[in-house]
Write a protein that binds this DNA or RNA. Structure first.
Length: 428
RNA sequence: GGAGAGGUAGCGAAGUGGCCGUACCGCGCCCGACUCGAAAUCGGGUUACGGGCGAAUAACCCGUACGUGGGUUCGAAUCCCACCCUCUCCGCCA
């Protein structure tokens, strides 16, 4: 959420900077109308309340003195009626104004490039050698199914499309990748967290999933408004909602391995095969609460932590900067890391690292204060995948494949698999 | 699921219709005194948000907020209703 005062004073600038996102521009005239109406209602209401407060003191005084206060009482009855009407109107206007603010995305940073969509995202750097094959490399789902590890058909029976059952080596490999990633995060100082996978509406609003993107979420039926988390960013960032952190603690850093649940509404026909786009996948998420003056350095650091995982796995990748049209709702600047997938002959997103400035902190009311400081400030929140586990499994399979259909496992993962170095038809 | 207790500032905690949100008291924190310095002690200070303004996250005036939302009343932390959360006991349960 943008700062109310900032929006009031910079309506044109807000509209202009949001054009960079190439989305429908927010209706700034509507905001101006609501804000004006709100102030008018407050002005009238507060004048009456001040009058009422004075009268109440007078009534109390008269009653103590045993005098009659019927005339004031009668007058205040009317004042109170009017106040009630004004307050009711004000509640509606304030709700509308807040809703307007909650649906406006963050302002892209100056360094976020212009552009409409993926094709306009500039490449920052590439790392590693793409493996070369003297045969046509297969896609991961072929490899995984042939070796008996991935079963998409039974997943359809159990749940539906966009799910997968993994067996034996595939299940263990996924667990090995997860643990390896958590160990990397721990090495970089992140505190491991096991958060709830189900959260309430306030939590979803804090990070920006609500109110605008409800259709992307799985919502639980029942009396409580519960949602399945689409990423651990949601519970991790909201951990300190409503709290005041000590400045000396910053940066506060958390990591978590969680399943992520996404409805994938509107992605029909996209990546229908394999593990790339699933309703449920595991991800290790990294979250940082940073001092406002340091958040862009922190973004570089965070991206580096995600890259470290791929480097240790020996997987080739590139880092791109998302352009305005491709930028997420809460972010002002995002680096995507794309891993090389020889089976698809493409780079595919495996991590997304974002600086949200104070956008989420303001929504979730997360603050920090220096010892002895008068005022609490909003920290900046950052999040990044470190990394998506399912897609990492895809990359390990496609990059490690051999002519005979077996898979050579990256050395970094072998200790997590009891020394296993290769998966072939005989591997259980 | 049943019974009971509770939710007030960073923390503990008082307050049961107007003199108690200008929130008792204590802890913590900040400033000062004492001290070579510190501890202890003593004195002072210490909620947030919104409106009027404004360059100001400065003063000043006003308003609002005692878990959340309603209601009663001229006036609610206080009375009534609903809900949420925490704790204790009982039941059930991985």
């Amino acid at each position: 959420m943008l700062d109310l005062k900032f929006v009031q004073k910079n309506l044109d600038a807000v509209a202009r900077s949001l054009q960079k996102r190439c989305k429908t521009e927010p209706d700034v005239a509507e905001f101006a109308r609501l804000d004006e109406k709100r102030k008018a209602l407050i002005g009238e209401g507060e004048a009456l309340k001040a009058e009422r407060n004075q009268a109440s003191a007078e009534i109390a005084k008269k009653k103590r003195a045993g005098e009659d206060a019927a005339d004031i009482l009668a007058r205040m009855g009317q004042v109170s009626e009017r106040v009630k009407t004004l307050d009711t109107e004000l509640v509606d206007i304030e709700a509308a104004e807040r809703d307007w603010l909650l649906k406006v995305p963050n302002i892209p940073d100056e360094s976020t490039p212009e552009g409409r969509g993926e094709e306009d995202n500039p490449v920052q750097r590439t790392w590693g050698e793409k493996p070369s094959f003297d045969f046509k490399p297969k896609e991961h789902w072929e490899l995984g199914q042939a070796l008996g590890g991935l079963d998409f058909e039974r997943a359809v029976k159990l749940a539906g499309s966009r799910f997968c059952v993994s067996f034996g080596w595939a299940a263990r490999l996924e667990r090995a990748i997860s643990t390896f990633m958590l160990d990397c995060a721990a090495e970089n100082g992140y505190t491991e967290v096991r958060p709830p996978l189900i959260v309430n509406k306030a939590t979803m609003t804090g990070t920006g999933q609500l109110p605008k993107f409800e259709e992307d979420l799985f919502k639980l039926r029942g009396e409580q408004e519960y949602y399945l988390i689409p990423t651990a960013e949601v519970p991790l960032t909201n951990l300190h909602a409503g709290e005041v952190l000590d400045e000396a603690q910053l940066p506060v850093t958390y990591c978590a391995l969680t399943p992520c649940f996404r409805s994938e509404a509107g992605s029909y026909g996209k990546d229908t095969k394999g593990l790339i786009r699933q309703h449920q996948f595991y991800k290790v998420e990294l979250v940082r609460f940073a001092h406002p003056g340091k958040s862009f350095d922190e973004l570089e650091k965070l991206t580096g932590h995600a890259e470290m995982v791929l480097q240790r796995l020996g997987l080739s990748y590139r880092v791109i900067t998302l352009c305005g049209g491709d930028l997420g709702f809460s972010s002002c600047k995002t680096y995507d890391i794309e891993v090389w997938l020889p089976g698809q002959n493409k780079y595919r997103e495996i991590s997304s690292c974002s600086n949200c400035l104070d956008f989420q902190a303001r929504r979730a009311n997360i603050r920090f204060k220096a010892r002895g400081a008068k005022k609490a400030e909003f920290p900046h929140t950052l999040n990044g995948s470190g990394l998506a586990v399912g897609r990492t499994l895809v990359a390990v399979l496609e990059n490690g494949q051999q002519a005979d259909g077996s898979i050579v496992i990256p050395e970094a993962l072998r200790p997590y698999l009891g020394g296993l170095s290769r998966i072939d038809a005989a591997t259980k």
